[in-house]
Nucleic acid binder design. Structure first.
Lengths: 238, 238
DNA sequence: ACAAAAGTGTTCCTCGTACACCCATGT
DNA sequence: ACATGGGTGTACGAGGAACACTTTTGT
């Protein structure tokens, strides 16, 4: 038992993980809650922060415990603290945000949770707590992030074609007619952050060049006070 | 007395307020702590969140109690929660961020705090807790925000000249040679977010046109999936 | 008359946009 | 041969960068 002179809120973390599998839809990782409140409802992975644990560590721990997904980069998204957002009392939740490719983070072991699953981003079930709000904020953050950081680093497999990269951007930015192929290629390649690593095999069309991201070139570009090159390359008019 | 089955962290808010007075330096609002820990040290305004109080409301309340500054817009910055960041135990702090013009938020009444004062941004005293880290993050956020939002709305008085606006950008972006006047004017005026409202009086040179921001035009531009116009106008190469 | 800051004309050139076309592979 | 996606050539125009210039005020 712990007692305090003043009442204290509880602190939790929740984590929004986006996954991409090459298709026309981003996916989102949800769990089915195994206990009350909202037992049986879908929700974001997350849980209470331990007393000696950093917030980001708590997010990664809860994610692994509930979904088996691990080895990923997260960034802080927003902290939700409105009184009444949790029926258990005053609960303040620090939300995190992450991008992964589905190949490397596929199946989903459930343990703490009842069940974990990837959902297409516009076929989400009803969600517990204010998790729908959290996801809305995460979507805005993603839309903003796309414009100044090469999200392909995180969402695509190690090697990929320019076609796949373009498909990813069209998916994330939700454009229907697609970008002009010519211009997409020119802009991306001009930056130099892509490195040629081979060619496709066994495809029923002209095999595409495979690329990977050159982390170092990217960091150099980003460092020099965003040289404009990067921004011009990523910041698509839609 | 309040008791819980599990231990809980405390939750505080801290707020980083930038002020501008037309000069070559941004200012930052600090208080001198009136009690331990760090009694007598300078720190960001802030304090404990009440149980029935929204986080943003807590930030505004503490700010007014400690500095007298009120009527301002804040946005959430980041949540700091590393164990050990506060000698009183586990304290998680949600930091907020704000921009004001010094004319409208001038003198600074101290009440809860020992004293409150505006400091030039690169002549800051030694700070309590991890507040220097918080300010570093805030500076990065400001540098990023400048590039896609017209910060003049918040940092300048109601009416201002293009020269003042340019001086502000040069200050915030920390450029020494200054932008090319011609190009600055063209870019800003092209957007149409500025509205002519008069002329300077009694100045020892050709009087400048006074402008104010047209909030509505700005919102229209921002809404249409940032039409590029805004970005091109604000996103200066440096 | 001069200092000081406001404000303008114009040139060069990069980059974004659009459209039409050719290329390599499996079936 | 043909379907399929990969990949290229090129022309037009808007906008960024740079420079030199004129204008209006108070002292």
């Amino acid at each position: 038992m712990y007692s305090y002179e003043y009442p204290r809120p509880s602190v939790t973390v929740d984590i929004v993980v986006y996954g991409y599998d090459g298709g026309k839809q981003l996916k989102l990782l949800l769990i089915r809650r195994g206990s009350d409140p909202f037992k049986g409802h879908w929700a974001l992975p997350g849980g209470f922060v331990d007393m000696e644990e950093d917030l980001e560590a708590a997010a990664l721990r809860e994610l692994e415990e509930e979904t088996g997904v691990k080895d990923l980069f997260v960034e802080q998204l927003f902290t939700f603290g409105k009184p009444g957002r949790d029926p258990r009392g005053r609960v303040i939740s620090v939300a995190y945000f992450s991008l992964v490719n589905l190949q490397d983070h596929p199946a989903v072991a459930a343990s703490d949770a009842d069940k974990a699953e990837w959902f297409s981003i516009d076929e989400l079930p009803e969600l517990a707590f204010d998790h729908a709000d959290i996801i809305n904020i995460a979507n805005s953050r993603l839309a903003a992030k796309v414009r100044y950081q090469p999200i392909g680093f995180e969402l695509l497999p190690e090697e990929f074609t320019l076609g796949q990269l373009q498909q990813l951007y069209e998916t994330v930015l939700n454009v229907k007619d697609g970008f002009n192929k010519r211009n997409f290629r020119t802009r991306i390649l001009r930056t130099g952050i892509l490195e040629e690593v081979g060619r496709q095999q066994n495809v029923a069309h002209r095999p595409a060049v495979l690329y990977k991201f050159n982390q170092k070139t990217y960091e150099d570009l980003a460092k020099q006070r965003d040289s404009g090159v990067l921004r011009r390359a990523l910041d698509f008019e839609i």
